[in-house]
Design a protein around this nucleic acid. Sequence first.
DNA 1: GTGGTCTAGACCACG
DNA 2: GTGGTCTAGACCACG
Lengths: 132, 132, 132, 132
Amino acid sequence: MMFIELDLQSETPIYTQIAEQLIEGIARGQLKPGEPLPSVRSLASDLGINLHTVNKAYQTLKQDGFLQVHRKQGVVVQPDTMPGVTAEFTAKLRQQFRALSAEAIVRGMTESEFLKLAQEVYRSNNLQQKGE
Amino acid sequence: MMFIELDLQSETPIYTQIAEQLIEGIARGQLKPGEPLPSVRSLASDLGINLHTVNKAYQTLKQDGFLQVHRKQGVVVQPDTMPGVTAEFTAKLRQQFRALSAEAIVRGMTESEFLKLAQEVYRSNNLQQKGE
Amino acid sequence: MMFIELDLQSETPIYTQIAEQLIEGIARGQLKPGEPLPSVRSLASDLGINLHTVNKAYQTLKQDGFLQVHRKQGVVVQPDTMPGVTAEFTAKLRQQFRALSAEAIVRGMTESEFLKLAQEVYRSNNLQQKGE
Amino acid sequence: MMFIELDLQSETPIYTQIAEQLIEGIARGQLKPGEPLPSVRSLASDLGINLHTVNKAYQTLKQDGFLQVHRKQGVVVQPDTMPGVTAEFTAKLRQQFRALSAEAIVRGMTESEFLKLAQEVYRSNNLQQKGE
DNA sequence: GTGGTCTAGACCACG
DNA sequence: GTGGTCTAGACCACG
C-alpha cells in the first residue's frame, strides 16, 4: 500500500492531510480503481491517531466520489468513473490560484517561474501519463 | 482605497480573506508602497466586523513584511523592499500545487488546462506588468 | 510544572511576562524539550487572567520557535532544535546593551561592575551548565 | 550638537528613543554637563515630530536627574552630580539581564559570548574613560 | 485619533 | 478537552 506522512504540527487538519495524500496516491497510480484501502481501525492504528480522524478523511473522499464504501470489501478506490472537472472544482482552483499568484507577484516571482513550478509539480504527480 | 468583499459563510477565516485581498490589491497595484491603509477601527466599521479581526489581518501581513505599522501614520503598505521569494514561500507554493494538481489529475484535467488556468489567473493579478 | 509570577502593576505586558518566564524556565532546565505546557485555559485560570493573554504569550513563543503547537497534545516545549543565535537576536541584544550600558556609565557604574552583574545573572539562569 | 536617529516603526516609543540617545550622548561625552540642549520646539521641528513627544523625553530625563530645566537657559545637561547607581537602577539592570541571558542561553549563546558582547558595547559607549 | 493590551464570553473544528 | 476564531467593550500609551 502507500505511505502516509503526517505533520502533527501543521495547520492543515490531519484528516485533510490524509485525504490529500490518498488523492495523490490515486493520481500517481499507486492506488488503482477498485483497490481496497485499509480499514479505519488499522489505518488509525498505523498512524497512531484517532479513529474519527481517519473516518472523516474517508467520508470526505466518499462524499466527493473518490472512494466507495462497500458492505463487504470495506473502503475501495472508486472503481467506476472518477468525478470530473466540475464547476465547483474549477472555482476552487481559480480561487486558490488567485491568492497564490497574488502573493507570488508581490514577492517578485515572474509568470514563467510561477508556471514552471506548477508544471513541475503537476508532472511529478502525473507519473502514468494517462495519454494526454 | 479598495473594495474588500467578505464571504461570511466561507470556511476561510475572515482575517485571512482580508489579508488575501490586501495582497491582491498590492499585486494589482491598487495599493501602492507607502500608501496608508484605513485604521483598524474604520475598516472594521466599514466591513461591519470586529476591530480585532481586522487587527489580526494587519498583524499577519506586518509579520510577513507586507505592511508596516508606524507610530503616527498608522498602517501603511511596505514602502521599502517587499519580501522576496523565500524558501518558505516556495515550499508553501509547492505544497499547494501538489494537492491541487493531484486532484486535477484524478479529475482528468490535463496539464495544459491546469497551466492555462494558472496563467490566466496570474495575469489577471499582474495588471501592471512590472517589466517581466 | 513551573511557577509563573505576574506583576500586574508592571509596565511589561502580562503576555510578555509569561513569555519571559517560560524562556527562563527552558534556560534553567525546569522545562524540558518536548514537555507539555498547560493548556491555554488551565494556565489562564491558574493565573487568574484571560485565556487570550496566555494565548498571545504562547503564539509569540511559537512564532519564534521556542514552542510547538500540536493538534492533540496541545502546546509543548520545542522538542527539536531550538532557535539559534540569529542576527536578529544579536541585534536586539546589542541594542539593549547599548541603552543599559550608557545609563550605567552615566551613573558611574564601572565596566567590571556592569559585567559582573551580567555574569552573575547569566549563571543564575544557566543551572545545567550545558557543557560550555 | 548630536544626531538623533528615530525609527518610527520601532516598538520603542519615540520619546524613549530620544531619551536613550541623549543618555548615550552624555555617556560618550558628546553632551557635557551644563551643556544646553535644543529647545523642545526646535528639536521637535528638526525631528519632524510632535512637541509633546520631545517634551516627554525631556521630562523623563529631568525626573531621573539627568537634565535640569532652567528658566533662562532652557534645558541643560545636569551640571552637578549625576544620579548614581541606585537600587532601582540595579534592579532594572538585573531584571533586563535576566530576560536577555535566559534567551541567550536557550539559543545556545555561551557565557563568554554573552559577556564579550556586553563588554564590547559598554566600551563603545565609554569613549572618555573616566579614569576607572 | 491610533494601535496595544486585556477581559468576558461564545461557537466551532478537530480529535 | 484543546486551540482557533470572532465579538463586544474597555482602558491606556503615544502623539
